[in-house]
């Protein structure tokens, strides 16, 4: 766990898509329709996922093409787009799953490939993009207002495990 690194992913934007027409809107994007609670990756960290029949998330690089496709759907009937504004982080390095055992009850070792995981981490509701393409890193996000606390807390834990 000596090479663990926590970074703020500030070059990403995240969208929450809701509404009866949301599945059609997502289905029309070039990235394709994601499965429920599965990651549908379309770039390095960009992905879509579904968390309900009419609920989707999209993460893309700021100004990314898929996000642009999505934004063009704004205003369409029964399609509601909400910029999530989540605090986004990338934790990388071998042993990140081991480090996670200190902050969340979720067992990442037992996660399936490309799961979209939602779990409580250090007291904060957090989602995780676990990708088999990137076994040594995880992208995760939480409510914007918890961002400073989570970053500080995780940084402390990382320092602690590095010292072990």
């Amino acid at each position: 766990m000596k090479n663990l690194k926590l970074e703020k992913a500030q070059n990403l934007e995240m969208w929450h898509i809701r509404g009866q027409a949301a599945p059609a809107a997502i289905g029309s994007l070039s990235c394709g329709t994601p499965e429920m609670f599965k990651i549908n990756s379309f770039s390095n960290l960009g992905f879509t996922t579904s968390t309900g029949r009419t609920e989707f998330y999209l993460v893309d690089e700021k100004g990314g093409s898929v996000a642009a496709e999505l934004k063009a759907k704004a205003g369409e009937p029964d399609t509601f787009l909400f910029p999530r504004q989540d605090a986004l982080f990338v934790l990388s390095g071998e042993g990140w799953k081991e480090m996670m055992l200190r902050v969340t009850a979720f067992n990442f070792e037992a996660a399936n490939d490309n799961d979209f995981v939602m779990a409580n981490m250090a007291g904060v509701s957090t989602w995780f993009r676990v990708s088999s393409d990137d076994p040594n890193q995880v992208l995760f996000g939480c409510d914007h207002t918890y961002g400073p606390y989570l970053y500080e807390t995780l940084s402390d834990v990382i320092e602690e495990v590095k010292a072990l």
Binding site: R102, V103, A122, G123, V124, D143, H144, T145, Y146, P148, Y149, L150, T153, V157
Partner: peptide, 13 residues
């Protein structure tokens, strides 16, 4: 254990 006391701050902090 380690104290996990989640704290919310607004961007105007």
């Amino acid at each position: 254990g380690r104290r996990f006391r989640a704290e919310r701050l607004t961007p105007m902090q």
